[in-house]
Amino acid sequence: MGGALTWNRVPCVLLPGAGASHDGEDSMKIMTIYAHPADTITNCGGTLARHAARGDQIVALILSHGGRIHANKYAEEWRKENPDGDIATAGLDDIVANKKGELERAAEIIGIGEIITLDHEDTYATVNEEVVEEIAERIALEQPEIVICDHPRNPAYFDPHSVATQMALAALSRAGTYLRNLDGRDDVPVRQVFLSGLPVYNLDGLSLGGVRNDCYVDITEVVGTKLAAMDQFVSQGYHGVFARKLVESFNGEAGRAAGVNFAEAYVRLYNETYSHLPVTEAALATDPLTRHITYSSVNLRGQYPVP
């Protein structure tokens, strides 16, 4: 059961080296669907980097333009005694263009082959049927095997992330019912949906009533790639120290649960069927007595200093 994601209902972990290159005939297409430009990188940038390295196709669908979300660069300029006129008076088009430039540079570092931005306002609060249809049409055009989006119970207070996921899941359902007779296109056979951003890292299925991530991807080998991509989002203060803090805390805690230095955690939407009981290579190779030492071996800020 090789490849960059190991799909098991036990918490699964990808071992380093399992994401080896393979020819294009065997490659998968992965589509991410997130609310804002930086979300794809912060949530699953390491996973995508591993998939890109082995030759999988990656397309990122961003629902909003991101002009108003985390506009730190522009808000902070007004706090200065002598603000830079170009920054302080930038219009929405200028802010959006800058954010898209950051996203393009980050995507190139990760290996994302295509970026699609729908350019909706990033302050939406409810599901919009027209946006659902837009997403469904994009899914139908791209025909991904795998979709990645936020967990619908993302705990953010103001949460367009959860709304984005509700629209993405509704669009997946809609795309799955397309019929050439009626719609001029075939249905879309998405095989699995991975939901990111659930901050529940308990170590077994009985803790906390069973609410947990059930799949972990080891991103230790590509954590520097993820940091380099995050360093592009200067306008929203996601670069430098913050990038390292986020990876240390968020991906470090996921790594602790997974028994590796750094991981990205997911909940799979669909159940999966096996011919035998699934146990990953990582589970068989782990020494429970010493794994806490092994997964604490990377000095992140020493190895990847703030640029």
Rank of each mutant, 00 (worst) to 15 (best):
R54V: 05
R180Q: 14
A263N: 00
R268L: 11
A71E: 07
L5Y: 11
Q303A: 11
Q303E: 12
I41F: 02
A263F: 00
G3K: 05
P152M: 08
P152N: 08
S64R: 06
Q236T: 14
A283F: 12
R180G: 09
N128W: 04
I109F: 06
H161W: 13
D204Y: 06
G197T: 01
P16V: 00
G85Q: 15
R50S: 04
A88L: 08
E281Y: 10
P307M: 03
N181E: 12
R191T: 12
Y157G: 09
E142I: 13
T42L: 15
S275D: 13
A228L: 09
V13H: 00
D204L: 05
G101H: 14
H120A: 04
G101V: 11
T123H: 10
N8T: 14
S64Y: 03
N213H: 04
A254Y: 01
A168H: 07
K29P: 09
S275C: 10
K99T: 12
A258Y: 00
V96M: 04
T32P: 09
E264K: 02
L289M: 14
E248D: 15
N261D: 02
R212N: 05
Y216C: 01
V147T: 04
I110L: 03
Y216T: 01
E102D: 07
L227I: 14
K80C: 07
A283G: 12
A283I: 10
F194P: 03
H36W: 04
S27I: 05
S296P: 11
G46F: 00
H70V: 10
P155C: 03
D231H: 02
V247D: 01
G224T: 04
P199L: 01
M1N: 13
Y270R: 15
L182R: 15
Y295R: 15
I87L: 09
A75F: 15
L179I: 12
R105W: 09
P288G: 06
E221F: 00
F233P: 11
M28R: 15
S207R: 11
E137P: 01
L208C: 09
I87M: 07
P305K: 06
P152E: 08
A282K: 03
S296I: 08
R174W: 02
E134C: 08
D287N: 13
R105F: 06
I58G: 08
A88V: 11
D86V: 11
R54Y: 03
G24D: 15
I148H: 01
V247R: 01
G67I: 05
A175G: 04
E25F: 12
K73F: 14
G176A: 03
D84F: 10
Y270L: 12
A97F: 12
R256S: 04
Q236S: 13
L118Q: 05
S207P: 08
L182V: 11
V241E: 12
V200Y: 00
M28H: 10
D93E: 14
A75Q: 13
N213K: 06
V267K: 06
D86R: 15
P37Q: 07
I112E: 02
Q57G: 07
L118T: 03
V211D: 05
N251W: 02
V267D: 04
A258T: 02
G176I: 01
K245N: 13
A20H: 12
P189A: 08
T290S: 14
P288Y: 07
G184F: 03
L227V: 09
D56Y: 01
